[in-house]
């Protein structure tokens, strides 16, 4: 009877639950980003506006006794209105962060055929997408949710009592919901564009072009036909409308924020459908 050297011992451990299988994909997405100095530098830049606002809050709170008009002087006084403006003012940085973090995630996997190997493991396409989305969302969340939340906490901390928190009880939820809305939207859009190409550079350019084109289309149709209804074609305009709703402001465009959010939801549903079609181990070209 032949004796074969198998040089292999069977593994008898317990694998982690299936619900956590997306984590290695998420870690593989975030790890390389955080190893890039340029990206870390970019994240720091994204926090600069929040740092400036933090200084303003400090000045307003500490100089309120001697300079009572400071709060109405245009400085960041941590009200709903200011937080709304903060979010809108940061849109450009959010977009570029989503390009940095998301454009290459699926495109690179498609270029290197990694999808074929990933999906030959005990992993559903949803696990893969959840992992990728977590990587982008974690990065985006760091610049969308964390800075305004830190400002809120700073303002509440500088307050001697609970006056500020009692005056703005829903503000932290508005901040989290607003940042979450931006994060989810930009995450799904960036992954969708990334899944349509095999080049991270092309995906990045296409993503920027998409936002520019959508905004231009909205502007052009607005001029041609009048009214604000074309704003539903622009994801950024829809996001702004959503923020108006969350921060209790009058809508920026003459369209119900609910209609804008419905348009945004439809756009995201289409994106998810595209992602589902694109994330396949083998690209079948008919």
């Amino acid at each position: 009877m032949p004796i074969f050297d198998l040089s292999y011992r069977h593994w008898h451990g317990t694998p982690t639950p299936r619900s956590r299988r997306f984590l290695p994909i998420a870690a593989a997405g975030i790890g390389p980003l955080l190893r890039r100095r340029a990206f870390i530098f970019w994240l720091v830049i994204c926090w600069v506006p929040a740092l400036v606002c933090g200084v303003m809050i400090y000045l307003i709170v500490n100089l309120a006794q001697t300079q009572p008009n400071l709060g109405s002087s245009g400085l960041f006084d941590a009200t709903e209105d200011r937080f709304f403006q903060f979010f809108v003012g940061m849109f450009f940085l959010y977009l570029l962060t989503s390009v940095f973090a998301g454009a290459g995630l699926i495109a690179n996997d498609r270029r290197t055929n990694a999808l074929q190997i990933y999906l030959s493991k005990p992993l559903r396409p949803w696990d893969y997408l959840l992992g990728k989305a977590s990587a982008v969302a974690a990065t985006l969340g760091f610049v969308t949710i964390a800075p305004p939340l830190a400002l809120f906490l700073l303002r509440a901390g500088l307050d001697r009592g609970t006056t500020y928190v009692r005056a703005h009880p829903l503000l932290p939820f508005s901040i989290i919901a607003g940042g979450g809305l931006i994060t989810i939207t930009l995450t799904i859009l960036s992954l969708t564009v990334s899944s349509l190409t095999k080049s991270s550079r092309t995906a990045g350019v296409a993503l920027v072009m998409f936002y520019v084109f959508a905004s231009a289309l909205h502007g052009m149709l607005g001029i041609l036909f009048g009214g604000s209804l074309p704003s539903v074609l622009s994801p950024l305009a829809n996001l702004q409308q959503g923020l108006c709703l969350l921060f209790g402001r009058e809508p920026t465009y003459d369209v119900s924020p609910l209609v804008s959010l419905a348009a945004l939801l439809l756009m995201l549903a289409i994106c998810v459908r595209v992602l589902w079609k694109r994330v396949r181990p083998v690209e079948v070209v008919v």
Binding site: P15, N108, T112, N113, A114, I117, S120, K121, P122, L123
Partner: peptide, 20 residues
């Protein structure tokens, strides 16, 4: 569409599939 079964299967594709 049977990921648990894929744990019992190994696949080596023809094309390279690496991050260099």
């Amino acid at each position: 569409d049977n990921p648990p079964l894929m744990a019992r299967v190994g696949f080596c594709p023809e094309q390279d599939a690496f991050y260099d």
